[in-house]
Design a protein around this nucleic acid. Structure first.
Lengths: 214, 214, 214, 214
DNA sequence: TATGAATGAGGTTTCATTCAT
DNA sequence: TATGAATGAAACCTCATTCAT
């Protein structure tokens, strides 16, 4: 009577079906954007009928928003300074940048979809776009906090500007990688970015970031 | 009393019709991307019936490729060092960066569509995407030539790396502006970018860019 | 009071819908051929919206192939020698030919569509055509087997030739009926054909078909 | 001033344009039938714009009717008894049948299109179909006349029946060739047909066709 | 004797979504 | 917790045809 019957027919399992749908949608949406992601395509890829997708998600908008939402945790861990305070800051920043690069290489669909949603301007904004921008704002705040720790003397405006730069560079380098493929050494570029950020902080602040205090 | 009646049946005029279709398509595609650009929408905006669009363009793909192609000239003039050789290089680079920023602010549709096309990974690549990447490659070559003039001693690899950075930063800052709207001062950010590029060239090359020769 | 209300929203019933679509498509395609059979026409005749047709069939090609396939059983029973072995062969062959004629008169759509598909030479052959030729090949084999029983001494080549003749005559007489309408007595012509076949077998084989051996 | 100017630009030449259009239409219609023959396709194949086709022909229907009409003369010569009266009739009939077969092999598009038009039943009959049936009726009359010469004693009904048979066999063997391709020896089959016709005439008439009276 | 351009109707197919079971 | 079936709207594109030049 319980679910331990052991029969082969895939037991109706809401959790797993939901996950399969999200996996399929994430992959397709990462490749083809909002309009390019059709329910029929998702249905085919995840093996569940279209109507089942509508059992789990209110509509296409809701599904794509869930895709974005689920990917948030990816960035939670990444945006933290690695190493302990005995190590020099430039190295720690560079190491964090490399972590970011690795994450982009591992699961590029999330950012690709997010950027597509960002660039599109349709009459009624998809909630997936809204969710992405929220997630991005959260990430931005974390990065600003990290940079503020790196340069405690910097004023708020400088931190904001450098944060904007850092995120812009991240987006741009990701795109460069998408275009250039193997000819682009993302890790090296991001390491360089990390050091550049440190330099900029130093210069704009007036020459005394955190680690210089012996 | 002349033929400028404007109403009823417009006199057949291929050149102008083609232009109107391209204008409409450029605007819509810049906002909504490849899939979001429906022929019906373009038809409505340009006033010609959908079937007339197919007289001028083989299909949707062809139309969007033409949109991209036509926008190329925008970048031809922008990517040239302004000023004459008596002015210091850092100022000239910064001025060019500001020109780029102004162009992005003036006609953002071209780059927005291009980036959307770039990010999408459809089974059969739209030729619009191919055309955009060609245009982009041409622009990249022009920029590399400019940077090589700025730092004549730099080796090829350094120039390539800095060029990649510069383009990535351009893409990224454009996106930042798209998201941030009026809160992002694109001109200031691009001016800063111009100077940063000069610094990077200087540092990576070993301290002697072009203007130092008295 | 029961569910036989019939009006408003028909209860979903895949089996029956599929049959209705096939019926409509068979009738239209039999009259107007492959290109002339539009999904809109089928939709109108069967009462289901066009999109529902695409639930049951992958595309128009698939639909017409199914139409042909379903009609195969018509020929299964027809191509068998009627009567028992005590009756003289010429009569039995003639009786079979008459059965064929009756079938053609009863449901001419199948052969008409099939012949149209056969005559068309489109760049990519419709699978409906392929299916028809398969069915036809099966029918041909059955007829050859019957003729081999009628003339056991005949060599393979003779049987093949006469079979080709028989089928050609069937096609041709069917067309004659299509053109001539009531002025063509198909039954009489087919009876004659049956006897002619017997004569041909006799002559080509050397004068000793099956029934002569009492 | 005359047309001897010798310049390269193809001189506007109604006759030749018309011929080119008809050639293209004949080929396409022979392959794809009435509906499958689009003006755009014909335009592409003959190199003239669609509007020029409408200068030469009232509409698609008119064009296809002209295609059929032009092919009539093909049959004028074919349906005549070759040889002179000193030769035996069976040989002369067989020779004529072989001529028919050769014509079918040489220009199969005419009959293929004609049969397609015959089989289709659309609401308003295309005039191309009407013209084909007229041509066919003329051909039928010629054939009946030939058969009447072959068997002067035969009554009208017998001649009509054999004529119907002959045409049906012709149609059917043509189709067999279309399906079977190289595996079908059309010449041999038609020679056989010629002899069979002679036999049938003989038998149905009571044993005394023309050539027996030496 | 042509033809570039235009056009409304209709073609096949896919879309997101709903609903009864 | 699902899903087979259905559906109106809209997608892209081709159709036969016309008309001003």
């Amino acid at each position: 009577m319980t679910e331990s019957r052991g029969e082969r027919k895939r037991r109706a399992n809401g959790e797993e079906s939901r996950r399969r749908i999200l996996d399929a949608a994430a992959e397709i949406a990462g490749e083809r954007g909002y309009e390019g992601t059709s329910i029929a395509l998702v249905s085919e890829k995840c093996g569940l009928p279209a109507s089942s997708i509508y059992w789990h998600f209110k509509n296409k908008d809701d599904l794509l928003a869930a895709v974005i939402e689920r990917s948030f945790d990816i960035w939670v861990d990444v945006l933290a300074l690695p190493g302990d305070d005995s190590e020099p800051m430039p190295e720690r920043l560079a190491a964090m940048a490399v972590k970011v690069a690795k994450t982009l290489l591992d699961s590029p669909d999330f950012l690709r979809l997010g950027l597509m949603l960002t660039l599109e301007r349709r009459p009624e904004e998809p909630s997936a776009r809204r969710v992405f921008l929220q997630v991005r704002e959260t990430a931005r705040a974390r990065l600003a906090a990290v940079l503020a720790r790196v340069a405690p003397d910097a004023d708020r405006d400088t931190i904001e500007t450098i944060t904007t730069y850092a995120i812009a560079a991240t987006d741009g380098l990701f795109i460069a990688k998408e275009i250039g493929g193997d000819s682009v050494d993302l890790l090296r570029l991001f390491e360089l970015l990390g050091r550049t950020l440190y330099d900029s902080l130093t210069r704009l602040t007036g020459g005394s970031p955190a680690t210089e205090t012996p």
